[in-house]
Every structure is written in structure tokens, then in C-alpha cells.
């Protein structure tokens, strides 16, 4: 994927940031989806948003997109109110695959051009700058050869890249990605991660909701773990820990510990911990709670998840 082009530099605006402070969001039916959530992110960041289904991930996204208004607290993007940030086209959104109507009669080109609407006049007639931005964006995600395809004719990975290209064409400084790795092969995932790293070095801010726990330490420098509220937020090294994950996921997380005589015939002091939310698992090599279990763990596979324990 190509480095930043002139079109991207032209659209560089205010410094991207997200500040969520003390935010409570209630739905019309009275259900409180998120309460007293706070976190802050700055430019040049890839932040993972982690939590079980129903933990409030999509509520946070909807609030950042101005779709839901917090009942309490405040949200600001690049130092502005959400509405003003949206008006300036600072926030780009890469939707989940299920949210898109793939049979809609639009070509790849048309979708990427939708990212430019905010830059166009009232009648949305594209100028040369808009066409250039679309070309650049498609080139960056290696989708130029598919530009005349109807979006439903693409593979899962290609579909993702189209919407990434739209976010690029928009020049969004804050990019929200909803489950970008679902239904995507490993090669495409690597390509997307590579592109996100490039965008980070350009100073953009990305918030990624994902169940793909295993990839998070690879490319996210910040993590926000939520379960109705923010359970933990901060740099990946200090925040993305087994303790924090267990707090947020509780029994919903599968958690295997392989050690003892599991991997070898003789009892082995080393151990591997696998934590998975049913996608790519988080594998921890090492010594955590070794003392506690050393020598005595003949059971081999210990399951912290009571549900799977019942199954065995």
C-alpha cells in the first residue's frame, strides 16, 4: 500500500482526538447501555475497543457518530462537539459487513465517492480534486482494478477495503472501524493492519471495535475495555492484561491454560494461556500464576469458564 499522497495532506485539519468523559447513554426504552464512561485518545493512535456483545461497544460508536445523545457527560472530537466535527467531515466510519446492503446498485467507485460528499457543492457534482482523492484512496487499498464492480460482486476482504478507501477519500482524521476483521482472510487482515499503521504514522486516530483479541497487541497502542462502563483504558502493555479481560468478559471468555503434562510427557514448568472470545485467541506465554499451579495441576486443561467446564 502506498504512502501518504498529496490529497491526504490537503485534507489535514485540526488535531484528531476523542474525549469521552462521564458519558451515560440511555435508549428511548429506558435501558441504560453505557454509564459513566470515560476515556481520552490523542493523535497517531490505534485504539482497540473490547467487550462482549451488548457491552456497549456499538453504543459508544453511535454516540461518537452523533446518532445517540448522552444523557449525562460529554463527548468531544478534535476539541469540538460531535455535530461540528461531523460537519467538517473529520469522522469517518467503516461499517460492519452486516450493516451494508450489498445488493444496492452502486459500484466501488460510487461508494468511495460518497466519502467526498462533504467536500462537494449542494448538488454533489464531483470536481477534479474529488476524483483524484477517490483514485488515491483506491490505489492505497489496492482496489483500482475493481473500481467498476458492483459492491456485491466482491469478496469479504475486498468489501472491507472499499469502505476503508471511502474513509480515506473523506480525509477523516478520526476513523471508527466496526469489526473490520470479521469474515476477512488473514492476508487481508494483515493488509488492513498495515494500512492502519501507515495512517497512524500520519497522525490519524483510529478506534477499532474487535473480538479479535489475539491481534490487538500486534497493532493497537491503546485499549479501552468496556462492560456497560469503561473497565480499563490505557496503553496496551499495561491495560490489555488477563485480569482486566477477565473482569470485563467474565464467563463469556474461553480461557484455556495448557501446562503440566499436557504438552509433554514429563511435567513442564512452562505454560501457555489461551484467552479467546471465539475469534483469534490471545495467547500468553509465561509465568503468570505458575507458583499457584506448579506441580499440582494434573488436570492439564483448566477452564475458568464454568460453562465449558460443565460440558467436560
Amino acid at each position: 500500500m502506498k504512502p501518504a499522497s498529496a490529497a491526504d495532506l490537503r485534507t489535514a485539519g485540526p488535531t484528531p482526538s476523542i474525549v469521552v468523559s462521564g458519558v451515560t447513554v440511555r435508549y428511548a426504552n429506558g435501558v441504560t447501555a453505557v454509564s459513566d464512561a470515560s476515556f481520552a485518545l490523542g493523535p497517531g493512535t490505534i485504539c482497540a475497543l473490547v467487550g462482549i456483545n451488548g457491552s456497549g461497544k456499538s453504543t459508544i460508536f453511535k454516540t461518537l457518530m452523533g446518532f445517540l445523545k448522552p444523557a449525562k457527560g460529554m463527548v468531544s472530537i478534535a476539541g469540538m462537539e460531535v455535530r461540528d466535527a461531523l460537519k467538517r467531515g473529520l469522522v469517518a466510519y467503516v461499517p460492519q459487513a452486516e450493516e451494508v446492503d450489498w445488493s444496492f446498485p452502486v459500484l466501488v467507485d460510487d461508494v468511495v465517492m460518497m466519502g467526498r460528499y462533504g467536500h462537494m457543492n449542494f448538488l454533489r457534482i464531483p470536481a477534479k480534486a474529488d476524483r483524484d482523492a477517490v483514485d488515491d484512496a483506491l490505489a492505497r487499498v489496492n482496489m483500482l482494478e475493481f473500481r467498476r464492480r458492483q459492491i456485491g460482486e466482491l469478496s469479504g476482504g475486498q468489501r472491507k477495503r472499499v469502505f476503508l478507501a471511502r474513509a480515506l477519500a473523506q480525509g477523516g482524521q478520526v476513523i471508527l472501524l466496526d469489526e473490520p476483521f470479521t469474515g476477512v482472510d488473514v492476508k487481508t487482515e494483515d493488509a488492513i493492519v498495515g494500512l492502519m499503521r501507515d495512517l497512524r504514522s500520519e497522525g490519524r486516530l483510529m478506534l477499532v471495535s474487535t473480538h479479535n483479541l489475539g491481534s490487538i497487541p500486534d497493532f493497537c497502542d491503546q485499549v479501552v475495555i468496556i462492560n456497560q462502563t469503561v473497565m480499563a483504558a490505557g496503553p496496551t502493555e499495561t491495560t490489555f492484561t488477563q485480569d482486566n479481560l477477565q473482569k470485563a468478559f467474565g464467563g463469556a471468555l474461553r480461557h484455556f491454560r495448557l501446562g503440566g503434562s499436557d504438552l509433554h510427557d514429563d511435567a513442564d514448568g512452562r505454560r501457555v494461556t489461551v484467552i479467546t472470545d471465539d475469534e483469534r485467541p490471545l495467547v500468553l506465554y509465561g509465568e503468570r500464576d505458575r507458583e499457584k499451579l506448579a506441580g499440582g495441576d494434573k488436570e492439564g486443561i483448566a477452564r475458568d469458564n464454568p460453562k465449558s467446564e460443565r460440558q467436560t
Partner: peptide
């Protein structure tokens, strides 16, 4: 005729419509 593209965007992707200020 004046708003067909905006309407298309709203019908295709409400979030993106919001992201471009509609």
C-alpha cells in the same frame, strides 16, 4: 433532481450520511 445523491446516500448508508453532515 437536486437531492438525488443525498437521498441515495441516506438510503444506502445512514451513518455515512451523518458523517458527511447530512
Amino acid at each position: 433532481v437536486g437531492r438525488w445523491k443525498d437521498m441515495m446516500l441516506v438510503f444506502f448508508d445512514e451513518n455515512q450520511a451523518r458523517a458527511v453532515g447530512l
